[in-house]
């Protein structure tokens, strides 16, 4: 095998067709496990929602259930605000035009970015508490200046290059033993390492609801929020932003609510205060839901963390 791109593709196809033992995937067991996990997650979210509504929250851990405890940097909440962040950026370079929060099956993402297709991207992530930072195969942890008095490391594929060819990762320990990660690329700064460390030092850890540009006076009680995508700016658009909230209920019912300064295609939409909202619903009346929504305008100082209120 000489291995050009076509040969690699052919080799992978042949490898994927290798003789295989019978699959051990048990779909019924998957469903049973997932249902248990949903019950546990719901219990945690209820507690989390209560805490976010007024009780001090000391930790960040979000439990997905079972033994795969992960630490989310943001998550959905069944409380008054469907989107909560567990870590947040503080100081950011002037070139940053927005911070996005995306939570759901793809995982959890908090990203700050500058404008343009190749503007700076800064991703914030969290890892479980451990003595040492998580290190992937093929990477090396190089000591970096301490962040707020705690250990920090550059994570790189090239031990001679702490900033990893411009695709830079810094991981630092935060109080409680967890590890935070800042991943930056497309950075135009003269000293990107110093900028990353300054951003890291100003990251705050703690659960807080993310203000959103709408209020909903009551949602059907059987709906649970499953995903929230709050792109600021929009994924492909530097000047606008878009919010999408996905809810699911029993019997396949679902509701999607989208808000943006841009008009969106859709049959059940309304405009007010310079914003547009569209509702897509299965098993619920979209126009009835639309009537319950108040848009809070483009000035984010007027946005709220009391998004879903009792009808």
């Amino acid at each position: 095998m000489t291995l050009d791109a076509d040969e690699l593709a052919a080799g992978l196809r042949q490898l994927a067709r290798s003789e295989a033992p019978p699959t051990r995937l048990d779909v019924a067991a998957v469903r049973a496990t997932a249902r248990r996990r949903l019950r546990r997650r719901r219990a945690v979210q209820v507690v989390g929602g209560l805490l976010v509504c007024g009780v001090l929250l000391g930790g960040v851990a979000v439990v997905n259930g079972g033994d795969d405890v992960t630490v989310a940097v943001a998550s959905v909440s069944q409380g008054g605000d469907p989107l909560v962040a567990h870590a947040a950026f503080g100081w950011l370079p002037d070139s940053v035009i927005g911070v996005s929060h995306v939570v759901g099956a793809h995982g959890d993402q908090v990203m700050a970015r500058a404008g343009g297709d190749f503007g700076m991207r800064l991703w914030l992530r969290m890892y479980e508490a451990a003595d040492d930072p998580p290190i992937e195969d093929g990477r090396t942890a190089l000591p970096a200046p301490e962040v707020n008095g705690l250990r920090a490391y550059w994570i790189t594929e090239d031990p001679r290059d702490p900033l990893n060819g411009g695709d830079a990762f810094v991981r630092w320990q935060v109080p409680g033993g967890r590890w935070a990660e800042l991943h930056g690329y497309y950075m135009k700064e003269a000293d990107p390492g110093a900028v990353l460390l300054r951003i890291a030092a100003d990251v705050t850890i703690g659960t807080r609801p993310v203000p959103l540009p709408l209020r909903i006076d009551g949602l059907p009680a059987d709906l649970d929020v499953t995903e929230v995508h709050f792109w600021r700016p929009g994924f492909t658009d530097d000047t606008n932003w878009e919010l999408a909230m996905f809810y699911a209920g029993p019997d396949g019912t679902s509701v999607t609510i989208q808000v943006s300064p841009l008009k969106m295609p859709g049959g059940h939409c309304r405009s007010a205060a310079g914003l547009h909202v569209c509702v897509d619903a299965k098993g619920h009346a979209p126009d009835e839901l639309l009537r319950r929504i108040t848009l809070l305008g483009t000035d984010e100082r007027r946005w709220t963390t009391r998004v879903v209120t009792s009808a």
């Binding site: 051990r24 995937l25 048990d26 779909v27 998957v30 469903r31 496990t33 997932a34 996990r37 949903l38 997650r41 795969d68 759901g104 099956a105 499953t226 995903e227 996905f246 699911a248 396949g252 679902s254 999607t256």
Partner: peptide, 16 residues
Amino acid sequence: QVAVTRLYLNWSRVRA
């Protein structure tokens, strides 16, 4: 098994 469990947990989104 891990991935399919996650798909189930978020199935309402996957089918949308």
